[in-house]
Each structure stands twice: as C-alpha cells, then as structure tokens.
C-alpha cells in the first residue's frame, strides 16, 4: 500500500510537470500579450515591463525559471493585479471555491445516494419514478440555467434571497444548490443502477437464506457493494465541482479561483493562468489518489494486485 502511494505521488509530479508544460506552450500560442490594453502602451514601456517580469528571455528559460520558482513555492507575480503574488491571489480565491465545492459535494451525497437507494429498493414505485425523473432533469439542465431560473424565482419574484455576492448564508444557498444539482442527480442515477444490480446478486440471496434481518442485509450486504461504483465517481465529481464552478462563480459574482482564472485568460495574465491550472491539476490528482485508496479499502479484491 505504501509503495503504491509513493509510486503514485512520484507519477503525480511528472503529470503536473507535463500539465504545466502544455499550459505554458498553449498560453504563449494565444495571440497577444499581457500588456495589450485599450490604448497601446509605448514600446519603451512594454520593453521595460518585459524586462522586469523576465519576458524578454527565451521561452525555455522562462519556463525553467517558472518551474524553479514553483519548486520553491513561488508562483510568480500577477501581471494584471499589479504587484500581487499569485500565491496571495489564490489564497483569497481557494477558500471560496473550496467552500462552494465541498458544501455542494456533501449536499449532493446526502441527497443523491439515499434517493438512488430508495428508488432501487422500491423499484417501479412512485418513489422510484419521481426520483428517476428528478435525477434526469437535474442531470440535464445546465447549472447556470438552473441558477438563472432560481434567481428569477427567489430573487426577482419572491425577493427572498440576494442575487449575488459572498459572505452570508443566504448568499450561499443558490450557488451551492446549482452546483450540487448535477452531481446529486448523477449519484442518484449511479446508486440506483448499482443497487438494482447488487440486489439481484446471489450473495444477497445467501444473506437472506441465513435469516438475517432485512436492515442488516441492506447495510452489510447491499450497500457495501453498491457504493463501490459511487466511490469511483465521487472523486471526479468533486474535482468537477471545484474546477467547473467558475460559471456559477461568474453568475453569482463570487470571487473564487474559477472567476480569477477566466479573468486571467482575458488579461493574458500568464502566471495567473499557470497558477490556476496548477491548483486544479493538484486537486484532481489528489482526489484521484484518494479514490484509489478508498476503493482498495472497501473492495478487498483490489488490494492484491
């Protein structure tokens, strides 16, 4: 197990390096540069800026310098937010993005998994049909469309909730719900399908033949098996929530990492783009690693490769 984690961590560093390299190349392929403004700057000024930020050096040297910095925990200085380090910008954005993502993830799990289980255990009942219908709707309606519709109802018509902003509990409700809708629906669909599959398994019949109470059969024999596929998608779902929240952050004007990243792209803020991608790639990699460990913990067949 330890060897597995060490190997995966080493591999992770390689992946992060390649991700940064690809991002760096793509970024410099984008037409224009960080100093493009409405009013063109004087060539002298641009030259001075390039020199100050090291952009006059050859691309490979810039990349090496950047990686060297990253290894020392220095993500560089933003080009668009004058004199702020990327680390401090991210430090402001990450808590918001993470709060949104984690709250939405918990909400999605709490709503999605039980409703999928309930639907499967009462297959073809009213509970099943309504759960499937809601899951299908929330799995297809885009989060920002949902957000807009909610905003129209709760802010424009009913005046119950503020449209945008960050800080209060009321301001959290709609963004969290919009973010959670899709993963909740997916959890419900996957849980339902896998539970239906497990219910038909021979070992569930064996458990019944031992005369165990139905509650024990469900918890010990059905759920433990039917949750395995849920765990495999939980990691990517959380990663999606954190990386995909930029639209919701945009809609509800929440200053999270996603909004910063998009602004970074508009402004050709190279270091900000790199910093954002690095953050997201680390989140994805760590979550995938967690899934693998959790997977091995719940399914003994995985442990002995």
């Amino acid at each position: 197990m330890l060897r597995f984690i060490v190997r995966r961590t080493l591999w992770l560093f390689l992946v992060l390096f390649v991700v940064l390299l690809i991002t760096f190349v793509l970024m410099h392929l984008v037409p224009g540069g960080p100093w493009d403004r409405e009013k063109a700057l004087a060539p002298k000024v641009v030259e001075a800026l390039n020199k100050r930020y090291g952009l006059d050096k050859p691309l490979w040297e810039q990349f090496v310098n950047y990686i060297w910095g990253v290894l020392h925990g220095d993500l560089g200085v933003s080009y668009s937010y004058s004199d702020r380090t990327i680390t401090s910008i991210l430090a402001h954005g990450i808590p918001k993005t993470a709060t949104l993502g984690i709250l939405a993830f918990i909400f999605a799990l709490i709503v999605g998994v039980p409703s999928g289980v309930a639907a499967a255990l009462k297959q073809n009942s009213a509970i099943d049909y309504s759960s499937v219908l809601f899951a299908t709707i929330f799995a297809s309606v885009p989060g920002f469309v949902l957000g807009i519709l909610l905003m129209m109802i709760f802010s424009v018509v009913l005046h119950w909730l503020p449209t945008t902003g960050w800080g209060t509990f009321q301001q959290l409700l709609m963004p969290v719900f919009c973010l959670a809708a899709l993963p909740a629906a997916q959890f419900a669909r996957i849980t339902r399908a896998s539970t239906l599959e497990v219910i038909r398994q021979d070992y569930v019949r064996t458990a019944r033949s031992k005369g165990l109470p139905e509650s024990t059969i469900r918890v010990r024999h059905i759920f433990r098996n039917s949750l395995i596929p849920v765990i495999t998608v939980a990691g990517p779902e959380l990663a999606n929530l954190i990386t995909g929240s930029f639209i919701i952050e945009n809609l509800f004007a929440i200053p999270g990492v996603g909004r910063l990243f998009v602004q970074g792209i508009f402004a050709r803020d190279y270091t900000l783009i790199m910093g954002g991608i690095l953050f997201y790639a680390i989140v994805i990699a760590i979550l995938n690693l967690l899934v693998d460990i959790l997977y091995a913990a719940i399914d003994p067949r995985i442990r002995y490769e």
């Binding site: 021979d202 070992y203 064996t206 003994p300 067949r301």
Partner: peptide
Amino acid sequence: SIIFQEPLTSLNPVL
C-alpha cells in the same frame, strides 16, 4: 438452510 450452486457468486466479495 441452503447450500447454493455457485460458491463464488453466492459469497459476498467484500466480507
């Protein structure tokens, strides 16, 4: 009690 035909699928893989 009953002994089933398929011992592999009749035993719970995660217990």
